[in-house]
Deep mutational scan, measured.
Amino acid sequence: WKITIYDQENFQGKRMEFTSSCPNVSERSFDNVRSLKVESGAWIGYEHTSFCGQQFILERGEYPRWDAWSGSNAYHIERLMSFRPICSA
C-alpha cells in the first residue's frame, strides 16, 4: 500500500508518502489534506483524527481536490485528517 498526500490542491505544496496508517496528519505538520494520490492498495480516509467521522473509500488513482473523494455527500467535507489501508485476508 502506498498513498501520497499534499497540503495544496492539484498535488502542490508539501507532500508526504505513507505505506501504513496515519491517525493524525497534523502530527506530520499538515493542517489538512488538500489532494492525494493512491499509488497502490485501497485506503479509508476519515474526516477527523483517530479514524473518526465521515469515511471515504480511496481506490488507486488521483484526487486533485477534496470533492474528488468527498463525492456527492449530503454535506460537503473539505477535511481529511486520518487514513489507513484496507487490508484483505
Rank of each mutant, 00 (worst) to 15 (best):
E39M: 13
S88E: 12
S70H: 11
T19I: 07
E78F: 07
S20L: 06
E27M: 07
E78I: 13
R84H: 12
E78P: 13
N24L: 01
V38W: 00
S26P: 08
F51P: 01
P64D: 04
G45H: 03
T19Y: 14
G71K: 14
W1E: 11
G41F: 01
E47W: 02
L36R: 00
S20E: 14
E9A: 09
Y6W: 09
S35E: 00
S72C: 13
S35W: 01
Y63D: 01
S20H: 11
G53N: 02
Q55C: 08
K37W: 03
N24A: 06
A74P: 15
S20F: 05
T49W: 04
R15D: 07
I5V: 13
E27P: 05
H76T: 10
G13W: 01
L58G: 01
H48W: 05
E27W: 06
H76A: 13
G45C: 10
Y75W: 10
G53I: 03
K37T: 08
D31F: 10
A74T: 14
T19G: 05
A89I: 13
E39P: 03
N24K: 03
D67P: 07
R28E: 11
G71F: 09
E27K: 09
S50R: 13
Q54H: 15
A42Y: 08
L80Y: 00
W69K: 07
V25Q: 04
K14V: 05
S40H: 11
G53H: 01
I57W: 08
Y6N: 00
N73L: 08
Q54L: 08
R65K: 11
D31I: 09
R34M: 06
C87Q: 14
Y6G: 00
R84N: 04
Q54D: 11
T49S: 12
R65C: 13
N24Y: 03
P85T: 11
D31R: 09
L36V: 09
R79Q: 09
H76V: 13
F30T: 02
T4Q: 07
S88G: 11
C22H: 03
L36T: 06
E59N: 12
Q54W: 05
S35T: 01
R65P: 00
H48L: 11
E17A: 11
G45Q: 00
E59F: 04
I44L: 13
S40K: 09
Q54F: 07
M16S: 08
F30H: 02
I3N: 04
F56D: 04
H48P: 00
S35L: 00
R65A: 11
N32W: 09
V33W: 01
Q54K: 13
F51E: 02
V25L: 08
Y63W: 03
S70Y: 06
L80K: 03
P23E: 15
H48K: 15
G45F: 15
N24F: 01
W43E: 02
L80R: 03
F30S: 02
D31Q: 09
G45E: 00
K37P: 01
W69S: 06
I44S: 05
D7F: 03
C87W: 10
A42N: 13
C87E: 13
F83T: 02
V25N: 04
N73K: 15
C87F: 12
D67N: 11
R60E: 15
I44H: 12
A68K: 07
F30C: 04
D7N: 08
P64I: 00
V33Y: 02
R60L: 12
W69C: 07
Q54S: 12
F56L: 09
